[in-house]
Design a protein around this nucleic acid. Structure first.
Lengths: 208, 208
DNA sequence: CCGACGGTTCGGTGACGGCCGAACTGGCGG
DNA sequence: CCGCCAGTTCGGCCGTCACCGAACCGTCGG
């Protein structure tokens, strides 16, 4: 369930129950514990109850656990499952930022263009901040949350950009329709406009 | 047990058993699972078996879990326990770097002296690298491990410096006897020479 | 060579936890 | 007003897991 919630959206108890294949009563029990423990936040709307990860810290924790526990995606079988997992590997959201080959490619491009410093840690350079704020028009005020943070990509086994900057970047990509969600899941697809934008802004020609 | 192992040292199975108050056979069972799961590494020496956290990633995971789960140190009672926990709050090692008020103070001083950029993320500045390498004489080669990383301090509720830089800094502090270990635990004490060094190198006058 | 000691293996036990089905609650819609 | 649906509560069952004591194994020291 926590893995499913990593898409950053709010799920209903019933959705999660069928998704993981347990009875609704079982799901209810688990979700109550996770809420009481502070990992999830709940929001009641009429007769249904939505849960989502409580905060970016919770998402990071789940992500880190998953990264350590999964030595690789367990071999999927069946055409449907294979295409779905291929789409996820190509591009997806990870809580509130971009991941998969797309997320890593953006991170790499920002690094080689000196917008991101991965040499002394993981931080935006002044130029990188300027690009985000002036060129893309986002704001980087984030309260106590770090502006830039490395998040280990569990399909690519590389770091991609998370934190406030990663979240704003992902919002921008979605708002400008550089990427669109595939169906209702976490997978995203790069649009032709997105392809152009990647080339002009970041010099990324193609994603393998 | 994992919390105890956060001091970075290698413990024997028996030590851990008595430390957490279970039978040796129980400890053995748990430790075998943790080793098989890749969280701990074991090293046999004669008739005893040492275990320690497998890698910095494992330490980070345990630390992050602890930071999230502990809303604060559960009120300790008794003079002995109180002084011990006060010493831990003042200064300690966290796996392989400095933590507690000492660790946070060093991190803050490096930040205000522009050695560390906490504004765009968490990274050493060129000046910070130069200070570590030229003035303190450490090397920052660390393979795949990040040079600088933020680690949430569970007593101070603030970030302190971890990663390769944090580890080298801690080694230096210990080697130059700026801090010394108190007894056999994780707690460290600032020596008079350490006090001088903090003042001359980082402009830190006193730790509250 | 023998005893002490650290560690492990094994069998058994008690309890806890996950899970479900059935009954119940309360919004929502016809 | 009644039926439907999402979710919850409750009771009970079963599996599993933590734990321990006792026996066992190797290593070290006398």
């Amino acid at each position: 369930m926590c893995l499913a919630l990593l898409d950053g959206r709010a799920w209903t108890a019933g959705e999660l129950a069928t998704h993981v294949g347990v009875a609704p009563s079982t799901a209810t029990e688990h979700l109550h514990r996770l809420v009481k423990g502070g990992l999830l936040a709940e929001r009641k709307q009429g007769r249904r109850r939505y849960v989502q990860l409580a905060d970016p810290g919770a998402a990071q924790l789940v992500e880190d656990l998953a990264a350590r526990l999964e030595p690789g995606p367990p071999t999927v079988t069946g055409l449907r499952a294979v295409t779905a997992s291929a789409a996820l590997r190509r591009g997806r959201t990870c809580y509130d930022h971009l991941a998969g080959r797309l997320g890593v490619a953006v991170t790499d491009a920002m690094t080689s263009r000196k917008m991101l410093d991965q040499d002394g840690g993981f931080a935006l350079t002044p130029y990188g901040k300027q690009w985000l704020v002036s060129t893309l028009g986002v704001t980087l005020e984030g309260g106590r949350r770090p502006v830039a943070r490395a998040c280990l990509d569990w399909t690519e086994r590389r770091h991609h950009l998370a934190g406030v900057a990663g979240a704003r970047l992902c919002e921008t990509f979605l708002a400008r329709r550089w990427v669109t969600r595939i169906g209702t899941g976490r997978a995203v697809r790069l649009t032709p406009e997105g392809r152009d934008a990647l080339r002009t802004h970041l010099g990324v020609d193609r994603l393998d």
